[in-house]
Design a protein around this nucleic acid. Structure first.
Lengths: 209, 209
DNA sequence: GTCTATAAAGTGATAGAC
DNA sequence: GTCTATCACTTTATAGAC
């Protein structure tokens, strides 16, 4: 029940690193947040950087692993996968809203971070998300580039979490109200995505008729 | 022609603060990047924090002012404004791709940053972007929430810049290639946005017929 | 395993010469 | 205005007692 010292430190580090970033986080603050001592943190994790790498890897897992698993399933079609993906991301990110910002910031300041993640790069290739989507778009008579499709899907899904502080500040909304808005999008985004594909194929058929 | 010392410091500070963030940037590094001395930086700007505020304000200007000006124009309709907005953002951000990440990060770690920007909060209210879009959606027979519309528009436009490092890393693309992809979106996004609105109103008319 | 005390290096800012 | 030298403080990491 009661988490051990190592777990307490990791939980504290996750909170602080994820919200403040590496440079702005003090190891003293992590220790205090964990209710232990600075020396003990180094006893368990040897260095700030080492502890950071562990938290970073876990955040990356949350961010990428779910998407990969959904697309690895051979039983479901792409349309279903899209709904599952949107549902998964919005659900997870409502629990940890700071993760997208953390991951994006990390990838900007250290573009090799993704490659360094164990097996991440291979998994991305093996899952052939790209060709699945490419085939799906083709079947539906759309000539949209798969990259654009993915950017639209992720943009509609993830961007609201990144923009949440700005929107809350600009619109004077409470965190809870904005969360409800984002939850609505679980069902809306698949419909919108569909509309974009349809528009694209309708246009094509208009030209040929 | 030759920029004076103050300008050189500001340019160096903009580069480093924008890419690394406040905490990870060393005043010594700014001085070196500007080709001057640490003492001189404090002679001109008194403190690191003061210099940061100036750079932050300028980044916020790039990020918000253009959108506000477009929506303040009474001559153009919303549909045209959307095209102008997408064109403006993608153009500006191709020049300064790190600004979205900077602004978002800043607003996350300091939610009051936006409010502290001179006149920004008032300008946002005065421009009544919200009611303009609300009216536009109504006229087109769509029952979409304006917030969702704005989130979709900005998500499709800005998210790709945030995700650029991840995509370049995952797809093995060069920066230049990805920039070309993003430039294509200037013309594509307005079409997609239109499709989303249409889908929404078609659905409504299907129900009533 | 956990603590206190401290070493070692980094970092923002200023004094004072030119 | 611009520089070198240095202060004052913070921060990571470790030594050593319990």
């Amino acid at each position: 029940m009661e988490p051990n010292t190592e777990e307490k430190i990791k939980a504290a580090a996750a909170r602080l690193f994820t919200t403040r970033g590496f440079a702005a986080t003090r190891t003293r603050d992590i220790a205090a947040e964990a209710g232990i001592n600075l020396a003990l943190l180094n006893y368990y994790f040897r260095s700030k950087e080492n502890l950071y790498r562990i938290i970073m890897a876990e955040n990356f897992q949350v961010f990428f692993r779910g998407a990969l698993q959904i697309f690895q399933n051979q039983e479901t079609g792409v349309q279903e996968k899209i709904s599952l993906l949107v549902d998964y991301y919005i659900g997870r990110l409502l629990e940890n809203p700071d993760i997208p910002s953390f991951v994006i910031n990390e990838l900007r300041t250290n573009p090799n971070a993704l490659i360094q993640q164990a097996g991440m790069h291979e998994a991305l290739k093996d899952t052939n998300i790209f060709s699945q989507i490419s085939q799906y778009l083709e079947d539906r008579g759309s000539d949209m580039e798969p990259v654009h499709f993915i950017l639209n899907l992720l943009g509609m899904t993830i961007f609201p979490f990144l923009a949440a502080p700005a929107f809350q500040s600009a619109l004077g909304l409470e965190k809870e109200q904005f969360s409800q808005l984002l939850a609505q999008r679980k069902k809306l985004i698949p419909v919108w995505i569909d509309a974009i594909i349809n528009a694209n194929s309708l246009k094509a058929s208009t030209h040929t008729s």
